[in-house]
Design a protein around this nucleic acid. Structure first.
Lengths: 334, 334
DNA sequence: TTGTACGCGTTATCAC
DNA sequence: GTGATAACGCGTACAA
């Protein structure tokens, strides 16, 4: 801790600037003095104080990463993406969990700025409009992953949720299903809303008229999934397949099916969304839609870095494709 | 970004020292000038550069958190504990994922030190002996969560794995089981080894002689769990219950049971370990051992902060209790 | 090729 | 009660 650039300058009998030069691999430094310096560095076990360096360079090489809930099952994969990519660009990441509290989010942004981070990645958040506007005004680099707040145009990594919903029903249709239910988080979340639209589009294309009783809405939880599926099962004519807007709800749906003495996929087919780790742990393994979360995280830091280089908000929106993962929870009808 | 303490000093027509005083809520500052300063701060939207402050104070108020695998299902809960507790102590956390690579771990430690973190929390790691020794020599605050490396005595938050194994069999015994299998990670992991010892202790106390064929070893994965259970099921006389050293293996075991056309807990009872989120998602819900991961994370930062205050390694070891969570995967025998 | 001196934004010491 | 000023550890013009 104690050994500074001055110590090694003294030890190598050169000036601090010379040491600085070899540290930063500048040209124009005599081979011999360079050697003396590196030896001194070795000998004293010196490593530069990056914080001090950041102070003069006006750059910390750290980025902030704010999530509303670290326990969200999508988080680990996303986080791995951002941490790994950040590292490969020479950045470290400082982490905050807001616990879904907007006030905390605001504090976190402030704190991160005080800590001189070079940019911030926000994910899953409902995005505090005013805060974002402020950041934008300051030309502070920010990118959002997942959620898009339309009001404050800010760089965003988004998912093709519409295509996602479409893909799910299309597959079900191809497998011969005609009566397809949908468990949705409804209009409360934009992603749910978009997936619903994709679902309707798929049905439209197949000339299947929209049937409101097949759409049931609940919050994103196992229990809600179970309850939604129970309602679907109680219909006078129950669906042969259902697309759940999220794996967690799909897992909940599994339970309702079992409780009703039915089985998957023999009696009813299910497709989920997100390809969470648990989707391969349940039986039958869940057919679902992969969102490539790691890639989203990587794209997030790439975009952030691009924005930092530009020195101003880019207002880009990158929309990523999803992928149907076929496993065991859907049966072909004939 | 641009507005500094000097700007607000000028704007309030006072010296920077005065501004600094009100910033740090020092006494001996006239109410009126204080007001002028706070107004200026408000007006210019100033917030102090914590990095610069850290430079003079020799304290960054950030701690490093290194994990070998962010995808580890135990990670989120642990991380929430450390992040939340760190925050409540005024610390931010800088995060690294080593991907199980010791070289990367070493780099991360170096980098974190260069970034002037005030301390480091290592978790789940196999602990690079030399690195730890070095840190200890420098009196750099470090605490490990979970893994204990005996050679280099370093402060550690550990789990009572022995008690854990004991608790599991004891419960099974109480439920009337006598022929109890054990799926273990074996001697490769210290935790597995200790749980195994707890298991044997429980059996001993019940005067049940140790039967080697009931112990089967594999790595910690779903597949290995399935394979291990398959072997247990193929025994001439199969166990009526099995304790799996980890929930993931327990889930794997579920599959082997189903594949064999048997059911849980009617034909065979299972208890897992760790109380992962997925343990309530499977059917039947898994009876398991909770390790209170969040509390471990909190205890980790508490210990780290204690060590930072002490200014030297404390070499403390705190061992935490585990708790049996009774759900649906164990049947009472009679 | 190398050294001197200043500045990055802040706090602490010491005058006044 | 308030203001200069020297650090903190480093990079970089500029001078030598």
């Amino acid at each position: 801790m104690a050994v500074t650039i001055r110590d090694i300058a003294k030890h190598a009998k050169v000036s601090v600037s010379t040491v600085s030069r070899v540290l930063n691999e500048k040209p124009d430094v005599n081979e011999e003095t360079k050697k003396r310096v590196t030896e001194a560095i070795e000998e004293l076990g010196y490593s530069p104080n990056i914080v001090a360096r950041g102070l003069v360079l006006q750059k910390s090489n750290v980025i902030g990463f704010i999530v509303p809930d670290i326990m969200n099952p999508s988080f680990p994969e996303l986080a791995r993406g951002v941490v790994a990519r950040a590292k490969s660009h020479g950045y470290s990441v400082m982490f905050f969990d807001t616990n879904h509290d907007k006030r905390v989010e605001k504090e976190a942004i402030r704190l991160l700025q005080s800590k001189q981070v070079d940019g911030i990645i926000l994910s899953f958040n409902q995005a505090n409009k005013e805060e974002l506007e402020k950041l934008k005004l300051e030309k502070f680099p920010v990118v959002q992953i997942y959620r898009k707040s339309d009001e404050s145009a800010i760089s965003t990594i988004a998912l093709d949720n519409f295509g996602s919903g479409y893909k799910a029903v299309k597959y079900l249709l191809d497998m011969g299903h005609r009566r397809i239910g949908h468990i949705t988080t409804g209009n409360h979340s934009q992603s749910g809303y978009e997936r619903l639209k994709g679902y309707r589009k798929g049905l439209d294309e197949a000339d299947i008229s929209y049937n409101e009783e097949l759409i049931v809405e609940g919050e994103n939880s196992v229990e809600a999934g179970t309850e939604c599926m129970r309602m679907l099962l109680n219909l006078s004519e129950r669906p042969t397949a259902v697309f759940a807007s999220h794996d967690v709800m799909a897992i909940g749906a599994y339970e309702a099916v079992y409780n009703a003495g039915l089985s998957i996929p023999e009696d009813i087919s299910i497709v989920g969304h997100d390809n969470l780790p648990l989707s391969v742990l349940v039986r039958p393994k869940l057919t679902t839609i992969d969102t490539h979360k790691r890639r989203l995280g990587e794209a997030g830091v790439d975009l952030l870095i691009e924005e930092m280089a530009a020195g101003q908000p880019l207002n880009k929106e990158e929309v990523f494709d999803t992928e149907l993962i076929i496993r065991e929870s859907v049966k072909a009808l004939r």
